[in-house]
Design a protein around this nucleic acid. Sequence first.
DNA 1: ATTACTAACATACGAGTAA
DNA 2: TTTACTCGTATGTTAGTAA
Lengths: 217, 217
Amino acid sequence: LPKYDEELLFFLASQAGLQSGLKTSTAKISASFGGSQQTASRKLRELSQADLVELNATPTGCIVRIKKKGADLLHQRLVSLQRLFNEKKKAQLQGIVKSGLGEGRYYVSRQPYLQQFKKLLGFKPFFGTLNLVVDQNQLQGFLFGLQSIQVKGFETDERSFGTITAFKVVLQGKQEAAMVFPERTTHPKNEIELISPSNLRKKLKLKDGSKVFVKHI
Amino acid sequence: LPKYDEELLFFLASQAGLQSGLKTSTAKISASFGGSQQTASRKLRELSQADLVELNATPTGCIVRIKKKGADLLHQRLVSLQRLFNEKKKAQLQGIVKSGLGEGRYYVSRQPYLQQFKKLLGFKPFFGTLNLVVDQNQLQGFLFGLQSIQVKGFETDERSFGTITAFKVVLQGKQEAAMVFPERTTHPKNEIELISPSNLRKKLKLKDGSKVFVKHI
DNA sequence: ATTACTAACATACGAGTAA
DNA sequence: TTTACTCGTATGTTAGTAA
């Protein structure tokens, strides 16, 4: 059961393209790809046995063509890499920690909000928010397609509290949290608030100016 | 000089993403990636020494993060693969061999055309055309940006011959040929004609229904 | 010039195990 | 539980050649 060399498959595809045959020799391949002529010969046969390439070896040289299975393998790798790098761009948001004014602490701890947070987000938030300065365009891209959670407002004798829109996120790759957008906010649009079960500043050792990243859940 | 394992790098990136750290262990990696715990341990250290990942190994497990150099390596691979598969789509046209009605053979062999073919295409065409059925949209994409060659028409006592638009191409990865579009053609738009120095049916062993591919020169 | 076999050699792997 | 060392063994590589 020979272990084929995807590296070489890619090298051959780069030279031949995905359809046409490449007229070459094991010596040429070893010279430009590395390794000895013997190794090139063996690896070509392995790729051929794995049905990844079509190999026509003669005493005058060899012709290599990428077969469907080989092209599929490379394409699968392409798709995986695209996903990887797309997710990086789309599903991630950088932010810089900033001090809030304490309003977050106040409204997060109101009972009617608390109950909904627990039910809708799945955790009882720490009585405080982490404020982040983000790039506004990046924020828009980040939120696009994310499921929004509506936390209903309510009224007390003294004042009324508006709806809060929340998004479940992951902070620093592991910490569950939620971005919260109160209906009536005093924040500029490039500043966001996060809530979480724990004191994020303590748990993640953050201070003003710390860089953090937020991801989709 | 350890040969680092791009496969493992990709595996780790898939798990961790490109930014966040992945809390794991060499045993877990070996279980899902393959190989032994010892090999996972060694390969992780190799990747770390090559500055592709940041490795924090402790007696309670390890944390792996893809470093810039590692992400760059994967991205380079992504770009190469994208190029490979883009070229496939753009610069290539599939076709299926079909029998023509013999008109091609007739007009190709007219002296005034012949002289121009020789001068403009660089070869004296075989007296016959290879007819291909292609996808019309694919054809449009294929021709886009290709330099067109105008073969002027002429008149005889009996009739007039219109301009022929031609494009130099390569057939089956190696055979030089040209796609020809007579001004007034009786072909449907998804059928094209190719001329070449040789009898393509014989030389490339084609018959009706054979799949061929045409590339930019 | 080729490909590819054989055999000597180099490297990689993993079981056992220490820390 | 970990990581990672040693070391016997399996696998990969290449020089020398045959065809």
